[in-house]
Design a binder for these strands. Structure first.
Lengths: 360, 360
DNA sequence: ATTCAAAATGACAGCGCTAACAAATTTTTC
DNA sequence: GAAAAATTTGTTAGCGCTGTCATTTTGAAT
C-alpha cells in the first residue's frame, strides 16, 4: 500500500466538516457562524447542532485573512498603576468574552521616544480591529492623530480633552468638589491640596474641583495651600513635609490620589501626629491601598472596571457599525467613522477613617 | 471608461510588493522574513532594504493560516493580585517584544466551574502557540493534563509540584527560613507565623521554611504560634487579633505575604502597639505595599518581572525547537515535546522598618 | 395554476502567506 | 574543464475562511 506524502494537515475540524455533517454548503455554515440573516431557522439549527457535535471553532487566522476583521482588540498601556491596569483588564475582558473578541496587550517600548510611532507599529503588526486607550497614552494627541490617519477605531478611558470620539470618563471636577464639601462639612476651613502629575489629564480637573469646592463655601483659594505632586508616594511625602512644617498648617489635606495620600500619612505618623484627630486626610481613586492603610483612607471611588467594560462595549459596537456601513464607503480606504460618544460615570465619595472634625 | 468592480482590496503592502521591488520571488522574501538560512547575504540585504522602504510588515493572519504557528502566546490568570499580574505582564511583554510574539490575555469565566474546560476553549479559539501559566491556575493538574493532551506547550511561573515541564520558581522554603534567621538573629525566640491560602502552592513551602528556620536555632515548633490565613488583608487582621489576644504573644510575627502583614499591622496599630519596638513584623513578596505602609515592611523580594520574562523565554525557545524538530515527527499530531527545565531564582530578604530586637 | 419578487442557498475565487518540491545557480572535486 | 555536490532561488498548491455573484427555492400576487 503506497501512501502519497501529504502536507501534514492540522487534523483540526474545519468548516468543511461542519458543512458536510449538516448537509449544507460551507457558505451557509459561515452565515450561521457570523449570525447573518437570511438563513432558515431550521437550517440554522441543523448547522448549530453540527458545530456542537464536532466541537468546532473557526480558525481566527482564516477568518482574518478572508474577511475584514481580526476579532481582536488591543489594549495599550504606558504607565498606569498596577491596580488601575488590573481593573481595566478585568473590565475589558468581560466585554470581550461576551462578544467573541480576543484581547491583545501591548506596552510601548520605553526606548522608543516616539509614542505614536510605537502605537502605529503595534497596530500594523498585530492587525487589531480597534484599540482601547487608557491614561496617560489616551491623552497623547499625536497617538490619536496617528490612529485617525490610519482609520483605526479606538475608545478612551478617562480622556481629558473635549476631542470627539468614543470614551468613558468620570467627573473628576465634581468628585473633587465633593471631597472639599465633605471636609468643609466637618468644619475644616483650611484645606491643603496636593495636585497630581502635570501630564496626567485628571490633574487639572481635580484641582479645579478643589477650587470650586472652596468657592462654594466662600473660602479663599490660597496659593500656599496647594503643592504640586506626581501621583507617587515620594511626592506625597514631600508635600506632607511641606505642610507639616508650616507655621499654620492646614487641618485637612486632600491628596489628589491615594498613593500621595499614603505618603502624606507616612510623614504624619512618622512625626507622631494622630490621624484623623489632629489632621484629616483624603485621597482619590479608592485603590485597595486605601483599605490597607491604617487608618483606612477616605477617598473617591473610581468605577474603573465598569468604565473599561463600557468603553470596550462602545468600541465593539462601533466596529459592528462600521462593518455594516461598508456598503456606503467608496474607495476611501480606512474611512471608518468613529462617531462620538462619551459616557460619564459617577465617582462617589467613600468615607473611611482619615477624616474627622478639626481639632479645637 | 468602465472600471471592473473589484473586491475592495485592503490596499496594504503585501509580500508581493516587497518581492517585486527587490527583484526576487516571494518565497525568498519569506525566507528573509523568517530568518531562514541559505539566502545569499546580498539578496537578504536587498530584501531587507525593500521591506524597510515599503514599511512592510507581514500579515499575521496569512502567516497563521499558511504556516504552523500564530506567533501569539496566551497568558491565563485566575486570581492573582493586581500587582503580581502587572509585574508578570511586564516581564512577559519584554520577552515577547524581543521575539516578535504577541500576547493574548485571558481570564477564565468565573461561571464556568471547570477550569480545564475554560482553558481548552480559550486555546482552541485563539490558536495561541503556547501558554504561560501563573499561580494559581498553573497548579491545577487538570489544566496541565488538558494542555498536554492537546499538545500545547506551556511554561509555569512558580509551580509547586515536581511535575516535569518548563518553569521558573523561587526557593520559598529557603527564603522563608531566611526570614526566621533574621528574626532569631535579632533575638526573637517566640515567632508567630501566618500561613497562606491552602490552595496556593507557596503556602506549604513557606511554612516548611518557617519550621526549618526554627529547627536551625533549636527552637520548638509550637502549634499555637501558627495560624492559617488566606493571603488577604482580612485574614491578616484575624490572625493579628488572635496573636495579640494571647496571654503570651510572640515578639515577632512572620506573615507569609505582605497583604496579611498589612492586616496584622493595622490591628497592632489600632491597639496602640508601637512597631517595631513592641512587635516585629515580616511579610513576603515585596509588593509596593510594603514600601507604602508605615512603618515600611521587612519582607522578601520576589523577582516576579524577571521570572516571568525568563519563563516566557523558556517557552519561546521551546516553540522554536519544536518547529525545527517537525521533521522527526511522523504523523503523531501534536506530539510536541515539552522538555523539562525549571530555573530557580533568588528571593532576597529586604530589611525595612518593621523588624527590631524584641522588647526587654 | 402562473408569474414574479423575495428569501435562502450555493459555487467559486482569492485573502497573503508558507510548505513541498523543482529548477537554476554556484561551488567543489577530480 | 567537466561532472558531481552543495547552495540558492523559484514555482505551485493550498491553509480555512469570507465576499461576490449566480442559482435555486419559497411565498405571495395575480
Amino acid at each position: 500500500m503506497h501512501q502519497k506524502r501529504q502536507r501534514p494537515t492540522t487534523g483540526r475540524i474545519t468548516i468543511n466538516d461542519v458543512a458536510e455533517r449538516s448537509g449544507v454548503s460551507i457558505k451557509t455554515v459561515s452565515r450561521v457562524l457570523n449570525n447573518e440573516p437570511s438563513v432558515r431557522p431550521s437550517t440554522r439549527a441543523r448547522v448549530e447542532a453540527a458545530v456542537r457535535a464536532l466541537d468546532y471553532s473557526p480558525n481566527p487566522s482564516a477568518r482574518g485573512l478572508a474577511g475584514t476583521q481580526s476579532r481582536m482588540i488591543g489594549l495599550i498601556y504606558d504607565n498606569p498603576s498596577p491596580n488601575y491596569l488590573f481593573r481595566t483588564i478585568t473590565g475589558v475582558l468581560e466585554a470581550c468574552n461576551g462578544a467573541g473578541y480576543a484581547l491583545s496587550l501591548q506596552a510601548p517600548n520605553p526606548d522608543e521616544p516616539d509614542l505614536a510611532e510605537s502605537v502605529t507599529r503595534f497596530v500594523s503588526q498585530s492587525r487589531v480591529d480597534g484599540l482601547l486607550l487608557i491614561p496617560p497614552v489616551g491623552d497623547v494627541v499625536a497617538v490619536l492623530d496617528a490612529l485617525e490617519a490610519i482609520g483605526l477605531p479606538y475608545a478612551r478611558v478617562s480622556p481629558l480633552d473635549g476631542r470627539p470620539g468614543l470614551g468613558v470618563s468620570v467627573d473628576d471636577r465634581h468628585a473633587s468638589a465633593q471631597v472639599v464639601a465633605h471636609l468643609t462639612g466637618l468644619g475644616h476651613r483650611r484645606i491643603g491640596f496636593i495636585s497630581g502629575h502635570p501630564e496626567h489629564g485628571a490633574t487639572q480637573s481635580r484641582l479645579e474641583g478643589y477650587r470650586l469646592g472652596l468657592l462654594r463655601k466662600d473660602l479663599d483659594f490660597e496659593r500656599e495651600l496647594v503643592v504640586g505632586g506626581r501621583f507617587d508616594l515620594e511626592s506625597g511625602r514631600r508635600a506632607g513635609a511641606y505642610f507639616l512644617d508650616m507655621e499654620n498648617p492646614p487641618t485637612a489635606i486632600f491628596a489628589s490620589n491615594d498613593e500621595m495620600a499614603a505618603g502624606l500619612l507616612q510623614v504624619a505618623l512618622e512625626r507622631g501626629w494622630r490621624i484623623p484627630e489632629q489632621l484629616s486626610i483624603a485621597g482619590f481613586d479608592d485603590t485597595p491601598l486605601s483599605r490597607t492603610l491604617w487608618p483606612p483612607l477616605t477617598t473617591v471611588h473610581q468605577p474603573i472596571r465598569h468604565m473599561a467594560l463600557r468603553a470596550t462595549e462602545l468600541l465593539l459596537e462601533n466596529l459592528a457599525e462600521n462593518l455594516h456601513e461598508n456598503l456606503d464607503i467608496h474607495g476611501h480606504a480606512g474611512s471608518k467613522r468613529l462617531g462620538s460618544r462619551v459616557e460619564v460615570f459617577d465617582a462617589p465619595l467613600v468615607e473611611r477613617a482619615t477624616t474627622a472634625p478639626p481639632p479645637d
